[in-house]
Design a binder for these strands. Sequence first.
DNA 1: GTATAAACGAGACGGTACGTCTTGTCTTTTC
DNA 2: GAAAAGACAAGACGTACCGTCTCGTTTATAC
Lengths: 201, 201, 201, 201
Amino acid sequence: MTAQHGTAPGTRRRSEASRRAILTAAFELVGEVGYAKLSIEGIAARAGVGKQTIYRWWPSKGAVLFDAFLMLSEGEDDSAALPDTGDLEADLKTVLRATVAELNDPRYDEPMRALTTEILHDPALAAAYAERLDRPMKELKKQRLRSAQRAGQLSRDLDLDVAVEMLWGPLLNRWLQRGGPLTPEYADSVVETALDGLRPR
Amino acid sequence: MTAQHGTAPGTRRRSEASRRAILTAAFELVGEVGYAKLSIEGIAARAGVGKQTIYRWWPSKGAVLFDAFLMLSEGEDDSAALPDTGDLEADLKTVLRATVAELNDPRYDEPMRALTTEILHDPALAAAYAERLDRPMKELKKQRLRSAQRAGQLSRDLDLDVAVEMLWGPLLNRWLQRGGPLTPEYADSVVETALDGLRPR
Amino acid sequence: MTAQHGTAPGTRRRSEASRRAILTAAFELVGEVGYAKLSIEGIAARAGVGKQTIYRWWPSKGAVLFDAFLMLSEGEDDSAALPDTGDLEADLKTVLRATVAELNDPRYDEPMRALTTEILHDPALAAAYAERLDRPMKELKKQRLRSAQRAGQLSRDLDLDVAVEMLWGPLLNRWLQRGGPLTPEYADSVVETALDGLRPR
Amino acid sequence: MTAQHGTAPGTRRRSEASRRAILTAAFELVGEVGYAKLSIEGIAARAGVGKQTIYRWWPSKGAVLFDAFLMLSEGEDDSAALPDTGDLEADLKTVLRATVAELNDPRYDEPMRALTTEILHDPALAAAYAERLDRPMKELKKQRLRSAQRAGQLSRDLDLDVAVEMLWGPLLNRWLQRGGPLTPEYADSVVETALDGLRPR
DNA sequence: GTATAAACGAGACGGTACGTCTTGTCTTTTC
DNA sequence: GAAAAGACAAGACGTACCGTCTCGTTTATAC
């Protein structure tokens, strides 16, 4: 039950080598020349592939980029849970600091901005992103929060979606809009403020 | 005290009519055809203006779009403070619901996505945005929070920047990434959760 | 030994239809709007062709025009010799009168002026013109003179190149510079004067 | 009797300095960048003059070029007759060799080609050229021939216009179309052939 | 083992838009 | 009131890519 398609008479014989070359080229190129100058033509040339091979299998430039990200994330261990030492605040700071580090990593900055741009203007891609890349990550985050909730460290009636977005939203926004320095200290500050709330205790 | 520049010998005589026509055309067009199909050529044609007149005064498509937003926002009353009834939670809900309504308004959706895209890839534009459009708004928000802080409704040592970002960040992120329904109820939920914090009280 | 190219892997598949459409459009347009207003853009539009298809195959506007002339001249019978009734003077008058008629024909006037302009400023084009269009014609003319020479009607030591240029040069010059009326009588006069020479006999 | 316009009531205060600067700039520029890249804009910049000053006084780029030639030729002695040693053939060879030398002079090549181009497409300019530049020269040539005619060295009933064109036409044509080497020997050959005629004597 | 049919690399095609350049007009300021 | 300066609407320049469409050439079953 591994085959993606039952091998029907008019068989598909897609070239795996071309697929990988295209995705790799797309990811590298967007990092080198930036989103604005990324072109199908350029990807095809870099991958040593005919343009038609791209148009045959992907509906848009964004879809190629998206698959390039998927390919990368498949290398990672999906089942890897977030750290759970019992100390929620420390664990969250660890994870958010890691997020900050990744957002500041120049290897991922341009590609992620490019993908974000595509998501911004393509609802279908946005849905795919939410489903394939964002949801698994969010699920891990919610899992950690659920564990804390069971331990009585979080409000019983807390909406975990809102909680996750309140923790990661500020970071993403600073990154996207360059609305301020994106430092580990900022991550810590967000965690503390979110946990305690704005009101005095 | 009217002259913008001291009228030097070979002075500049920029056409205000062309400037307004270009900005108006840019804003309208991005709403009609979307960001991807927005072109300098199209803006010039719609504005009844030569392309060179655009290239002469703006360095990029994003800069035009940015100025179009600036022109709109200049119509608004900048000194208008956020509502302050004394009931912080209610006031915040009112404001965030208004934000939600604006983000959902189709007249602003495409233009704002377009501007966001440009900001995403152009640090200079991002700085201009932060300075000219975002900061004044953020100042108003912080002012309201400061008032609440003085009234003892917010922690004394609260970082107001973090607070503002924790309130508005989740909304903006849902909007940008279409990561879930952007409803008034969501706005309320964000306000409540932010004020009380994730921890049980 | 029939194949023009050994059909290599990435072979060329130039569109003959586009080529003809471009040349026809170029010839028609130069007659309609004149040389000064002839543009690649206009040719492409008239021919229903992308600009790149012109730039791909021709190095300059002049080269297109030149090929347009070539296409026309290929329709004509190249082997057609000049008339040879035995009466050299009469034959030359016939031919030069025909030349005068053609130069005065409004259908060819503008296109030929345009081509001449390009030749005037482009040595490479001038060489191509001399080789492909001018030389075959000149050869026919020299052939007729050679026949007369054999019949003792022309000096034995006559330089036929000089002779041809002395017969046709004055006509072309009047046409180019509009230096006087270009009439059949003028053609006759040139023939008579050239044959007899300026000196009294 | 030097003024071109009588000083009419609404007096003209045309700047002679600008006029000369424009004509000089035009002549120099056409020699430097060639006809194709000669622009009004460039002439104005080189001359340190506003574009309007050119448009105000000349109807076309060709007219500027034409006046530039006029200015040069005014420096020359118009009354200078062609050499008349009594030996017509030798005198003609001298003059035609001088013509050849001038046509081969790179300082005059480009400017003359440029002017020729303009004449080619502008009948009004052609008429001005014929009247102001060509006719005076032609008159000198005809004068020399008339002298020879009186001396019995040329046919009594010779059409001097045709004669002049038969002598100079071949040279100009070779120059224009680069239809062969333009050497002093060629000039000699033309003179000899024209004088003796094509027919055997 | 061939047939055969798809996917492939290559790249020409009709187009759109780019950013630059020049045209000829218009306007402002200086002399 | 002519001149220098230069903004303006218009539009062509030559280039880069778009997405579609043949071309021959692999290449991997299916016969």
